[in-house]
Design a binder for these strands. Structure first.
Lengths: 233, 233
DNA sequence: TCGGATCATATGCTATATGATTTTTCAATC
DNA sequence: GATTGAAAAATCATATAGCATATGATCCGA
């Protein structure tokens, strides 16, 4: 996100005409964050003009961002009825998404154990250390921090596994975003932190099979932690 | 509060609406097909205005389609330089893409053997039959038909496996489109037809392990057939 | 031949028009 | 009097045209 989005109120409409070329507001990032934080609740309409006005841009860049968000599965477009945010995942969808993760993430964790560069190992260890001793709060901001940490760690592991196709396929699931939308009132779990540490320990010690197994265990647990929060489906 | 009683019906939209409101041209489909057929060569610029004029629409729907195509990895956007089609896959990218397929398609083929409905089994068998005895030509149109058959068969298997997340992740790789761009001068292979038939035989006979193994074999072979056509990387 | 100025072209955006949809209003009926 | 249904108004999504700016190529002079 770039700038000037903490004030949802009126921006002066580009007086004089000098400022129209100044800043490219990251409409995509703004909308993704707004959906993440449930500022735009699930299954609610996204008013293109309202977004455009609140960001001080016109409709065209908003439409472009929404087209991308639809590819990401965060909004859906109905002809002549505009865009709506998607529903929260139900239990069936969680099972399907986690099954997908179980196919690619243990494999990727194993590859990371084999292929990670020293710098990548250090980044993984740093991510673990930064949360190993952190307080585990239960307020919104704490949970958001924790969710971001979770997302970063998994992304680091994928990146270290050396397969860009798989990494992008994983990113496009936006699994952490969907999980956050379900659990944004929840709290960070010490169990998750421990499971993350175990995965990274195996990767750092170049234990391919152990890393894959630890990731599989972690995914099964995280799925089971999430399922009770979702509707049946 | 407005009361305006007059203004009788006398405003039927009638004519006028016909010309400009005719049909929503499928810009996305047009561009995807154009890239597929190499009418827009790899790594070449896509002139938004030219596309708009040739399709008889304005720039806005073209921009929206290009935003979606970028999410699909078929074009890339450079700021103030517009959109370019992506390069052909190189050997490293083929290996990465096929590795991804090897993670999800054998699993999905196995699930299809377990879960496919009778209608889905029939659709699979029909797809096989329609090409089992077909002539295997080497001209452009024949190869295009064959590629479409290949894409349909894999899509049917994914659909029968009962996991929409995995199905969408697979679709978004556009692996058949990338393969076609590399091999569009090639010819359909009898070997591929036979491998397809073997996979479907296992699925129809509810042989989960056999279906997965047959799919894995098929993927390895198709990868090895494709690699010589790509640049090193 | 090389460097710099000039100009044509394309991009990204804004402003606006058009028509579909949704909401509100209001009268008629039960 | 409450409720239903239709008509009008308002709202909103989509599309179009046009403008300001950045880019890249051409041309000129040294």
């Amino acid at each position: 996100m770039v700038k000037s989005m903490s004030s949802p109120i009126a921006q002066p409409p580009t007086a004089g005409g000098m400022s129209s070329r100044m800043v490219a507001v990251d409409v995509y990032g703004y909308l993704a964050a707004a959906i993440l934080r449930n500022e735009i609740p699930p299954a609610s309409r996204v008013n293109i003009n309202a977004v455009a006005v609140s960001l001080g841009v016109s409709a065209t860049p908003v439409r472009e961002a929404l087209a991308r968000l639809e590819s990401d599965g965060l909004v859906t477009q109905l002809h002549l009825k505009g865009y709506r945010t998607t529903e929260l995942l139900n239990q069936r969808e969680i099972r399907e998404l986690w099954q997908f993760r179980m196919l690619i993430e243990p494999y990727s964790a194993g590859n990371a154990a084999t292929l990670a560069t020293p710098a990548q190992l250090e980044a993984l260890q740093h991510e673990i250390d930064s949360f190993a001793s952190a307080p585990v709060g239960s307020d919104f901001d704490s949970y958001q921090d924790f969710s971001a940490h979770d997302a970063r760690l998994h992304a680091l592991i994928l990146a270290a596994s050396g397969n860009d196709v798989i990494t992008r396929a994983f990113e496009r699931t936006h699994c952490h975003l969907h999980a956050f939308r379900l659990a944004y009132t929840g709290s960070a779990g010490r169990a998750t932190v421990d499971e993350h540490a175990a995965i990274v320990d195996h990767i750092v010690s170049r234990d391919t099979a152990g890393a894959g197994a630890a990731m599989m265990t972690h995914l099964a647990h995280s799925r089971d932690r999430l399922l009770p929060l979702a509707k049946q489906g």
